[in-house]
Design a binder for these strands. Structure first.
Length: 548
RNA sequence: GCCCUCGUAGUUCAACGGAUAGAAUGCGUGGCUUCGAACCAUGAGAUGGGGGUUCGAUUCCCUCCGAGGGCACCA
């Protein structure tokens, strides 16, 4: 433990890299040469070390050696190149895996780094910072947010947090469809409720229509004059925005279709742009985009024969605004699976106006199936049959709702059972994680005057202590990986892993009322655990309760 | 009919083409006079069927079966 004697702080300050995988990669790159693509993964089992690489399989192909031979040679070279004593053991296993064990000294340096950086631990500066726009929720202002809006919403807000941590600039945006047929329909629904209009079958039916009718009972002319927009504006401010806030969904920009596209004549500009390139067909009294030349299967209507623009045209104009006018490097849209067929259409539209479709990433979220026991409930805004976001949050709480939805990959056709909702909330793993946080906090309070310093952390040598540190230092890599593949569900799994490792540590190693030096060393890990959990919770948008 | 997504323990979900397929929950067993038992330890339990690609397939390809969602001058 010479590190301890030298004083850990001084050594750590010079250690630049905190991402273990990057660090190991750079080490291997020196050994192998830069052209090889090196993959490092967390080992699945302790007997396979802490980190694993299968690089020997790739290299063996080129040299015609057996992977095992190559792995043996490589592991020797890695040993020689490991000047910082990062590894305490390098092993070669059966077919040709190279398993790496991080040395206690190195782990302790990393632990010290966590304590130094606190809330900033995990943040990094990507070498290629981008100006990213993430658009999510964007539900029509024609009714309350439904529970199903939560899935994409939680994903978008968490992904935005991740991107920021990695060093990108992020704009969180909500696109408000505050004009068009649906909005007019909303206005008509309210007028019908007031008896000023014939009720129609496709009118919105929810209870909120009555509330709107009460509010607008003296403003019927304004509703007509704005084609219902005045109702949509009111509904958005009074119903949707508070729900978003309650669910922890925050936005940097609210993009009004009417104000930003229609009033500013952006639709016409886009039409002119397309006409210039001879991409518009006119027949049957309508204007069509010749998307067949691009990526779509058939032409699509831009302007209907009655002269009304389609939403397709608005969406092209909107993405023209994002990609060309505002010039984002990357635009991420989060859509429900019911819009899947629209992807090729929009991409070809984007291409038609001269933007790079590669810069538009559309994440498709599978729909949430709402169950009441065995029975499926079909949700529909028009019929008024739905569970609102507010219902969900009121029932299970913001933290449980966010964690629950964030646990699943977007590809999963998840079921949400109302009967089990309450029960689920009690069984929700979020409490397991928050309990770990509260427990860590409680220990620190119990320790009272005993200051947590890094002075004695060199004494941390047993397996429970080291395993906990190993779990904690994954955080920067977890963020990095999530920023690259958008698999936000990784974060909840990681929160569970850290919590579990901490609970295990707690059961086996007493912290307070021990030898003072051991106590202070262990308090340092407890504080580090609390720090990491807080950092994860912040990204997930859930609270970190000091007590439960 | 065509296109997209999914099929993994009883249930809800994981697993860059990698090792003995992981969790949670439920079920069985054991653990509170000590820092929070909302916890820990431990046991049983799964890749829809059939082909193929290769050192290696839950993952890629083909096919069959099953579930969800799209295929409008709707949004």
């Amino acid at each position: 433990m010479r590190l301890l004697l030298l004083g850990a702080g001084a050594v750590v300050a010079r250690l630049k890299l905190v991402k273990m995988i990057d660090y190991i990669k750079s080490l291997l790159t020196k050994v192998i040469g830069s052209d090889a693509e090196i993959k490092i993964t967390f080992s699945e089992k302790t007997e396979f070390g802490d980190y694993t690489t299968n690089i020997a399989f790739d290299l063996a192909k080129k040299t015609n050696q057996s992977p095992l031979e190559t792995a043996n040679e490589l592991s020797q070279k890695i040993k020689e190149a490991d000047n910082d004593n990062c590894f305490s053991r390098i092993g070669v296993a059966k077919p040709g895996f190279i398993n790496l064990w991080i040395s206690p000294d190195f782990l302790i340096k990393q632990l010290s780094k966590i304590l130094d950086l606190g809330p900033e631990y995990g943040e990094s500066k990507t070498s290629n910072p981008k100006n990213i726009q993430i658009e999510f929720v964007s539900a029509n202002p024609t009714g309350p947010l439904t529970m199903a809006n939560g899935r994409g919403g939680f994903l978008g807000s968490t992904l935005a947090n991740v991107m920021e941590k990695i060093g990108h600039k992020v704009t969180r945006e909500y696109y408000i469809n505050d004009t068009g047929h649906q909005v007019e329909l909303l206005g008509n629904s309210v007028l019908a409720k007031l008896g000023l209009n014939e009720p129609a079958e496709d009118h919105y039916q929810g209870d909120y229509i009555q509330t709107l009718a009460d509010y607008f009972k003296n403003s019927a002319d304004d509703i007509k004059g704005t084609n219902g927009r005045i109702v949509a504006d009111y509904l958005f401010k009074e119903l949707i925005q508070p729900s978003l806030k309650k669910a922890g969904l925050e936005f940097d920009n609210w993009f009004s279709e009417y104000e930003n596209l229609h009033q500013k004549k952006e639709l016409q500009k886009v039409l002119e742009l397309l006409a210039k390139q001879n991409l518009i067909d006119r027949y049957d009294g309508a204007q069509w985009l010749k998307t067949t030349d691009i990526e779509d299967e058939k032409s699509r209507v831009l302007v209907k024969s009655d002269g009304q623009p389609t939403y397709f045209l608005s969406d092209i104009a909107y993405h023209y605004d994002k990609l060309i006018k505002r010039g984002f490097d990357l635009v991420i849209d989060i859509w429900g699976a019911d819009h899947h067929g629209y992807v090729a259409r929009l991409k070809s539209g984007v291409k038609a106006v001269g933007a790079n479709p590669e810069k538009l990433k559309i994440i498709i979220i599978q729909l949430v199936r709402l169950m009441r026991g065995e029975q499926e409930i079909r949700m529909s805004k028009r019929s008024g049959q739905f569970i609102t976001m507010d219902n969900l949050i009121d029932e299970v709480g913001k933290d449980a709702a966010r964690f629950f939805f964030l646990m699943y990959s977007p590809d999963t056709h998840m079921n949400f059972d109302l009967v089990l909702a309450k029960e689920k909330s009690l069984k929700n793993p979020v409490y397991y994680c928050q309990y770990a946080f509260a427990r860590a906090n409680s220990i620190l309070i119990k320790a009272g005057s005993q200051k947590t310093t890094t002075e004695n952390i060199g004494l941390l040598t047993n397996v429970n202590e080291l395993n906990l540190i190993k779990a904690l230092i994954k955080w920067p890599d977890i963020l990095q990986q999530t920023a690259e593949d958008y698999q936000v569900n990784r974060l909840t799994r990681y929160a569970l892993e850290v919590s579990k490792t901490f609970h295990n540590f707690y059961e086996k190693e007493r912290v307070v009322d021990n030898d003072p030096k051991i106590t202070s060393a262990r308090l340092a890990i407890v504080l580090a655990t609390k720090t990491i959990l807080k950092n994860i919770f912040d990204v997930l948008g859930i609270s970190a309760p000091e007590k439960m």
